[in-house]
């Protein structure tokens, strides 16, 4: 009965025209594909335009002098040494602080925390924190690290602020990595008398490590590109010296780019393009590192 009903909804075989039906359906499909390609072209086109523009304008300025000089009022003498050192130190602090805190939080939430309303509240908050605009973190850093802890507008304050910024991301990706460890491994460890901590430390973490590290590296690369929180924090734009210690004032690459590109002289816009090339190069390298690391560690299985 059911089959005959279905049949009734089709045209009878004798007066069915294959071309008409197939044609209109195929047209819809082709339209969708065309639209998808167009959408992709817009995205890729934008990036390519940006890249080509930056390369054309920046490459002539990119030389050894540019990498090893401090900022200057004269575009031909301006360099990014202070900014690169500032970026490097800030990121080192960010990673040193956020990595252990993030991983331990993830371990607690995945392996230890009981599933109750409090845990769920924490989870929701972490997910929300990951979506908070970065400038808010700048305000937080300003209030907590710069003012309350009296760290001034230092590298340390900047690194800690960025650590707060990436912490939710690190927790989320680390949890994901820990969750993907097969349960059989945990059971095997418990089955021979391992404590929960021995199980986590010796068996779960090593397996989750590739995922955790990849996530952390990507989080660090996000921190490198951040400008807003450090501007809010009061990082300098122009410094003709290298920081003496971690409590010294500093600047980072994105801020220098921001500063140069807002200057009236056209040459400085091109110098900014050169700095953008360096920043993109660093980010590309870091992402490459993440991919290589993941492949390397995955091979152990």
């Amino acid at each position: 009965m059911a089959t005959s009903e279905i049949r009734r909804n089709f045209a009878p075989a004798e007066d069915m025209s294959f071309d008409a039906i197939q044609g209109s359906r195929r047209l819809k499909g082709m339209l969708l594909v065309a639209f998808s390609i167009l959408a992709l072209a817009v995205g890729v086109g934008m990036v390519l335009t940006l890249l080509i523009d930056v390369l054309v304008r920046g490459l002539p300025w990119l030389d050894w002098q540019f990498l090893t000089s401090f900022d200057s009022r004269f575009p031909e003498r301006a360099g990014i040494l202070a900014a690169m050192v500032g970026t490097a130190l800030t990121i080192v602090i960010t990673v040193i602080v956020s990595l252990p805190v993030g991983i331990m939080s993830a371990i607690y939430l995945e392996e230890y925390a009981r599933d109750n309303w409090f845990t769920r509240l924490i989870e929701i908050n972490i997910a929300n924190l990951a979506a908070v605009p970065s400038i808010i973190y700048g305000l937080l850093g300003l209030a907590v690290f710069v003012r309350f802890f009296g760290l001034n507008r230092s590298i340390l304050a900047g690194g800690l602020t960025l650590a707060l910024l990436v912490l939710p991301i690190i927790i989320v990706v680390s949890r994901e990595a820990i969750r993907s460890v097969p349960n059989g491994i945990r059971q095997a460890a418990y089955g021979i008398g391992a404590t929960q901590w021995q199980t986590v430390w010796h068996q779960v973490l090593p397996v989750a490590l590739p995922g955790i590290l990849t996530g952390n590296i990507l989080a660090a690369s996000r921190a490198i590109g951040e400008t807003a929180p450090l501007v809010t924090l009061g990082a300098l734009t122009f410094i003709p010296f290298l920081p003496k210690d971690l409590l010294d004032r500093f600047t980072v690459l994105p801020i220098v780019i921001f500063n140069w590109s807002s200057k009236p002289q056209r040459e400085f816009h091109d110098v900014a393009a050169a700095a953008i090339i360096v920043l993109l190069g660093i980010l590309l390298l870091i992402n490459l590192l993440a991919i290589v690391l993941r492949q390397r560690l995955r091979k152990q299985f």
């Binding site: 097969p182 059989g184 491994i185 059971q187 095997a188 089955g191 021979i192 008398g193 090593p206 152990q300």
Partner: peptide, 17 residues
């Protein structure tokens, strides 16, 4: 301590990686 004295072998072989 119980699990050390009463060991277990599982359905799916689960050697450590």
């Amino acid at each position: 301590e119980v699990r050390r004295r009463i060991g277990m072998v599982f359905q799916k072989p689960n050697p450590f990686p």
